[in-house]
Design a protein around this nucleic acid. Structure first.
Lengths: 204, 204
DNA sequence: GTCTATAACTCGATAGAC
DNA sequence: GTCTATCGAGTTATAGAC
């Protein structure tokens, strides 16, 4: 990196443009030309800064998801109560996705193209251990603190409620006539509303 | 169609293979070669039966989603109670997606590439009218039958709980160690469990 | 570092024999 | 109806001048 550090560097402009294109078109649909246009340079420069499309994609992905995964791993094996875990997962995921709204679609697409390889990559070859969380749910049921529910169903519900609105943004916006700001506000509310919705449902 | 009707027709084999490929790779990622391989023929035959990739995609899409959309439109404007609508939407969507598990991903992908055009195509240029449903929710709140909740949030929740598990099948299966049958059973349960989960949460 | 030009390749589509 | 062979458009990637 011998260049001068004046305005927003070419490198950064490429990364920003690439994020934008990769999320709206997916890896296969993305065109290096579109990324170059978005960054205000030509295709050759993309290859100068990042050897290949593959590598550009890789860098963006790691940079985006790299910080969130370890947090979730730590959370689910922590000593917090079930309610705190639900609260922190929802808040943490929704906050992350509000800052990187392209991530949910990005992850989903790659997941479908090569499930095993991608899951391993995402979790650095070490799957998070859900057994403690599952056990915790079963205990709360046995103690009579929450209604009987299969842990698998509860975890599915929590993830669904957090992730899906980001994936379905286009259809929600059109169907419910939400503009950019209204959509953002609706999502913002969900940081509190989703844990509330879940607890209202399961608590006795 | 002058060919003999012996085994599973070439045409049907193409459609089956195409479904399979389109859902796992998306429209842009799908390769005519892969579809041809899946159907046990060569690329030229694809073009003989279906003029273009575009057209093949179109046919599969209309065939899959064509029946479900009108049902939903009728349901939300019907005279049924809020609870019955929730129950029937969840059961209807989950049943449809269990039979056509590729649809959720398929719709989502196209939605992201060309949101407006695709939504119009999906609903035949006539968006479903949610106002009656929204009004119904507000009334139930005013009557004190359910807790205060934004109709937008409630509808988002319902759709999330129904759709997301199909999208996230690969990660759920790996994370929770579910085989094909176990996953199917978990989803099957959700036909009843999701409406229950929602009602438990909102009812007074 | 940035550009133009072009090589190398992928993939949808077509021609034409059988 | 089915195949092989090939074209042509569109894309990633590289060479080489400035």
């Amino acid at each position: 990196m011998v260049k001068k550090e004046k305005d927003a560097s070419t490198e950064q402009r490429i990364l920003d443009a690439a994020k934008q294109v990769f999320v709206s078109k997916g890896m296969a649909g993305a065109r290096m030309q579109d990324i170059a246009d978005g960054a205000g340079i030509n295709k050759a420069m993309l290859h100068y800064y990042f050897r290949s499309k593959e590598q550009l994609f890789e860098i963006i992905f790691r940079d985006s998801i790299g910080r969130f995964v370890p947090k979730v791993k730590a959370l689910i094996t922590s000593e917090l109560s079930l309610y705190e875990k639900i609260e922190q997962f929802c808040d943490g995921y929704i906050s992350m996705a509000l800052e990187n709204p392209y991530i949910p679609m990005f992850v989903l697409n790659e997941l479908h193209k090569q499930p095993d390889a991608f899951v391993r990559k995402m979790f650095n070859n070490e799957l998070p251990d859900l057994s403690k969380l599952v056990q915790q749910i079963d205990e709360e049921i046995k103690k009579g603190n929450i209604k009987p529910i299969s842990p698998v169903q509860l975890i599915m519900n929590m993830m669904s409620l957090c992730v899906f609105p980001f994936l379905a943004k286009p259809i929600f916006s059109i169907l419910m006539g939400l503009d950019e700001l209204q959509f953002r506000n609706s999502i913002e509310q969900r940081k509190k509303a989703v844990p509330q919705f879940i607890m209202d449902s399961i608590k006795r």
